Amino acid sequence: MGLTALIEFLERLDETHLQMLDLAAAKKQAIMDNKVEGLIEILNQESKLVKLVGQLEEQRTQATYAFLQEVGIRSNLNLTLTELSRLVFDPEDKAKLLHIQDQLAHTLDRLKKANELNQRLIEQSLAFIDYSLDLLVGRPNQDITYQHPANRDNAARRPGFFDARG
């Protein structure tokens, strides 16, 4: 298994995260266009990719331990890629490992920023919906109680968007 397998799993993790980045862009557009069905489909695809990332992470961990055993370390240390690269003596292999580390870190940073933007867009959408509902049905702080129609003129009226007396 070893270093070659580890690098392959890291490359697959990067590819999967790039797919998630594409989904984040599609999610942003679905949020902006208020396409709920499209958003649900994107979330389902995203869920499958999250499961795949979990599986790849497990395989990456196994490949890391196999590599450690190949270099004579019997303990299951939890080393960073930078620490692992110090155990790689072949310059070409070390360069590959450090390159995929940088690439994956960059992809993860882009994905994090895209997800943060989508979170803000969702919060803004929810705030707008809440504001719109307040305009249509009135302020939520008002007491909603039954009043006899004859006493209606004396009571404070609930402001609303529509005037039913038309």
Rank of each mutant, 00 (worst) to 15 (best):
G2I: 00
A5Q: 07
E8I: 02
E8G: 03
E11K: 05
E15Q: 14
T16R: 03
H17M: 11
L23T: 06
A24L: 09
A25E: 15
K27P: 06
M32V: 12
N34Q: 14
L39I: 07
L39C: 03
E41R: 12
N44V: 09
Q45A: 14
E46G: 14
Q55N: 12
L56H: 03
E58C: 06
A63N: 01
T64C: 04
L68P: 05
Q69D: 10
E70S: 05
V71G: 09
G72K: 13
I73R: 11
S75Y: 08
N76P: 01
L79Q: 10
E83G: 10
P91L: 00
P91T: 00
P91R: 00
P91S: 00
D93E: 12
K96W: 01
L98T: 10
I100Y: 06
I100F: 11
R110W: 02
K113P: 00
E116F: 08
E123P: 02
E123W: 04
L126T: 10
A127F: 11
F128G: 10
F128A: 13
I129H: 04
D130Y: 04
V137D: 04
V137K: 03
G138C: 03
R139M: 02
P140H: 00
P140E: 11
I144D: 11
Q147T: 15
Q147E: 12
P149M: 05
N151V: 02
A155K: 14
R158I: 15
R158Y: 03
D163H: 08
A164N: 12
